[in-house]
Amino acid sequence: MNQLALLQNALVVGAILFSLGLVGILTRRNLIVMFLSAELMLQGISVSLVAWSRYHGDFGGHVLVIFVLTVAACEAAVALVFVLQAFARTGRLDSAAWQSLRESNLPRRVDHELPAIDTVPPTFPRLTPAGVLPAADENDLLQREHV
């Protein structure tokens, strides 16, 4: 296998994952999705580290990724606690609910009215009734009431 080609391809995959996570953490307003984007960036870094490790024939990248996993677990635990606290205070998972913490020279974010979601009610297939409706058995009905 061409080691340099493998390194480059894996680094490109890591770069794509990292960029996707960056875009997600910049744009999304849901706190949970922001954390998922941060974890996506960590995954991109892990792929890059292991690719370099493979190329150099060294376990350094592997060891670093193990510590990344550890710190990610700690970070998720602590951060989710804060997310829950934020939700308990505002009732929303919205990062813009905390925009009073912004810099004083930044404009306030104003939410405009959103158009209603044009959800089409789902249509389920209906079975055509076939045969004759059986006569109701009284004993059966009595037993069913106790269920």
Partner: peptide
Amino acid sequence: LAPYDRVSNEPLLSALAGATLL
């Protein structure tokens, strides 16, 4: 769906930033 899930902060600028980095 919450309203804050249906909008995003500066999608154009963020997509441009991510693509530039990529």
